[in-house]
Nucleic acid binder design. Structure first.
Lengths: 212, 212
DNA sequence: TAGTCTCTGTGAAACGAATCACAGCGTGAA
DNA sequence: TTCACGCTGTGATTCGTTTCACAGAGACTA
């Protein structure tokens, strides 16, 4: 019913609105929000409609109220606890985000199979050996998993997380991962993204400037 | 003319095909490639059509030949040199990918404003102070930039890269970045992705199992 | 040699999302 | 009080992508 892309954009609007709030701005027009989010005014209005909030034709949207409405919409349910599997560079980068992050999406556990990395706390997040994955996920009631392990281990990690009760996955491994139909999975394939950029860069820069 | 999403899927097929080649598989049917790439057989056939390759109704596609055709299609032009700006955890994670990566998309330079991180070589990639960005990008003929700096610095980094001749950008900063119209930009907003997953996880796990 | 089978390639249809375009409204000006 | 303005909310439209559905073709069987 609610589109994937609308949710993505609402998340962007939300961040922009919080920045505006910090800057003391009280009202915002759709075209302004659009410019700062990289989309069109019509799209902003459609998306805002989905949250049920309604603005004023004269003042536009009330920044605080719209931010609140998007918050209620995006984070309507209980806080979604998150587990991270794989404490490599990427995993650590994700943990470093936590301070900026939403308290409704707390990162409560991280797992790794390297004994040197576990049994300590990084950025406020406890690190466990991967053997304890099921145990911790179940006891903490974790519902979201982040897969930041090598490709070869991704499918098995996903399977274990799903069995333990996770219903949302964020997969950084450059591999297609099968999950049960009730689980939502989002793939962020970094090397694919880079190939895409390189492809379009190649189109845009025909060989004229290549020195040889 | 060629769709963004088709390019993304071709990149996925390519990786799957390379895996199959390593495994000694010589032929593959569209539905098999689809299953391993997370899409449908019809979509695979459409996408393959875009590369100009044609398979046999009996044997399916020749793994090596199709991989070659996709390679030619995706990497038709000169190698696209890449620069990374921001050597934090995320930046280092990206550098670590390089061994697995395509020689047609070499990461040739990294920049940071932390003096302690520069003037050395990480994973075969030279690190420079960010002051030298324009100089190195121009002299190396770098066409693709990766923005892995804090949000506040993202727009300025993008501007500098574009001025120096970059025509493709991969942006990890959770901010909308304006670039000139001839530059292709792809945004990978990690925290947005996590919010999206948390949202859909919230929908799928109605509060029944929350203990309290 | 004729028949059957299963796959590819692709026109056509279905679907979903972005955009257009305008009615309705509240405000400020005269 | 009336008018003009510029924005929002939203039905209608357009656009791009995915899916359907089937003709065509090569190999294998008998």
């Amino acid at each position: 019913m609610i589109s994937d892309k609308t949710v993505a954009r609402l998340s962007v609007y939300r961040r922009v609105l919080l920045d505006m709030q910090d800057a003391g701005q009280e009202h915002v027009f759709s075209h302004e929000l659009a410019a700062r989010s990289g989309c069109t005014a019509a799209q902003v209005r459609r998306d805002v409609m989905a949250t049920g909030y309604t603005g004023s034709p004269v003042r536009g949207y009330d920044v605080a109220a719209l931010a609140g409405s998007i918050n209620d919409f995006l984070f309507h349910s209980e806080a979604q606890k998150v587990a991270l599997v794989g404490i490599g560079n990427l995993g650590r980068a994700l943990m470093a985000f936590s301070p900026r992050r939403n308290p409704r999406i707390p990162l409560v556990a991280a797992f790794d199979n390297d004994a040197a990395k576990v049994n300590r706390v990084i950025h406020g997040c406890r690190c466990y050996p991967v053997q304890q994955l099921e145990e911790v996920v179940e006891s903490e009631g974790i519902r979201v998993g982040i897969i930041a392990v090598p490709s070869a281990a991704a499918q098995d990690t996903a399977r274990r997380l799903c069995r333990a009760g996770v219903v949302g996955l964020l997969n950084f491994a450059p591999t297609h991962v099968w999950v049960p139909p009730h689980v939502y999975i989002e793939n962020l394939d970094l090397s694919m993204a880079l190939e895409k950029v390189a492809f379009f860069a190649g189109l845009r820069a025909p060989q004229k400037e290549i020195s040889s």
